[in-house]
Write a protein that binds this DNA or RNA. Structure first.
Length: 268
DNA sequence: AAGGACTACAACCGCCACAGC
DNA sequence: AGCTGTGGCGGTTGTAGTCCT
């Protein structure tokens, strides 16, 4: 039998479920001294717990701003959308759901949403052509600002995938996640020019989630657009400060009409 | 009522990034 | 430049509670 975990003083560390007394000790200590330097917290609070265990208990359970209770429908929708954009980056997703922890969202995803989405996907897949998994969704909108168009076009350069040939399509790539801020968009995959019109295709590979995701993704584009044009809130603007746009000359897209390409194989 | 299957979620583990030395 | 300590993250496990037969 190997040596058990220790707190540096030779004391054997507790593992497993936290007791109410341990919770109280930790909460009182962190409230008084702050939640930094966890090795000091663990040592000085008088808990026979590791720094890691103490930190996790505080962040996932004892923190005063934790929201207890069931995940709401709105929160669930947001989790699905964010997961579509960010993947298993639970801390980023949690950052967009006040009072929820990454662990809670991860658990909710693994125990509820995976099954729910698999079931929905199975149902919806029967509605589409079984020869293809990738769909192109129509999304009509008013013309975004030139600056946003500019940035979308920049993306195409970044991906080395700008194409004016509608036969080509790009892969799903991050659009706005320049600094791991969590603001990314996987929607703008292909920019094409057809008969003098600029079109953007949204490629989706998950039919049941496509519409809500496209709405969400496009709303993120609009948020981003608002930030660029100065019409957004400070909080939003701060997320995009310091971005630079230099791949296309100003005005490159200004005089083009703007729409999103219609899907050819979308089946309702 | 018993016990096996399933669910929910707290907690742990291993890995990585980063700062300080 | 390399080492060490620490914090943070995502994956996984353990287990209590619930459901089902």
């Amino acid at each position: 039998m190997g040596r058990g975990p220790s707190n540096g003083r030779g004391d054997k560390l507790n593992k497993g479920a936290w007791t109410a007394l341990e919770d109280k000790i930790l909460k009182d200590y962190v409230t008084a001294h702050g939640d930094r330097r966890w090795h000091i917290v663990a040592r000085e609070a008088g808990l026979s717990r590791s720094a890691k265990s103490s930190r996790l208990r505080w962040l996932n359970y004892l923190r005063p701003d934790i929201k207890r209770g069931n995940i709401t429908k709105d929160e669930e929708d947001l989790i699905i959308r964010l997961h579509k954009l960010l993947g298993n980056r639970w801390s980023l997703i949690a950052g967009r759901l006040p009072g929820r922890t990454d662990n809670e969202i991860k658990n909710y995803w693994n125990t509820n949403l995976i099954k729910k989405l698999e079931k929905a996907s199975h149902t919806n897949n029967r509605r589409v052509n079984d020869q293809t998994k990738t769909k192109i969704e129509t999304f009509e909108t008013e013309k975004p600002s030139a600056l946003l168009q500019h940035d979308i076009a920049k993306l195409q350069f970044l991906n080395d995938d700008i194409c004016l040939d509608p036969a080509r399509s790009g892969g799903r790539e991050s659009l706005l996640d320049h600094n791991n801020s969590g603001y990314c968009c996987s929607a703008a995959t292909t920019l094409v020019e057809v008969s003098g019109q600029l079109k953007m295709d949204f490629l989706v590979d998950d039919v049941d989630r496509s519409i809500t995701n496209l709405e969400y993704e496009f709303s993120r584009l609009r948020d981003y657009d608002a930030c660029l044009t100065g019409s957004a809130s400070n909080a939003c603007s701060e997320d995009f400060l310091g971005q630079s746009f230099q791949w296309l000359p100003e005005g490159f897209l200004d005089n083009r009409s703007w729409e999103f390409a219609s899907g050819e194989d979308w089946v309702i």
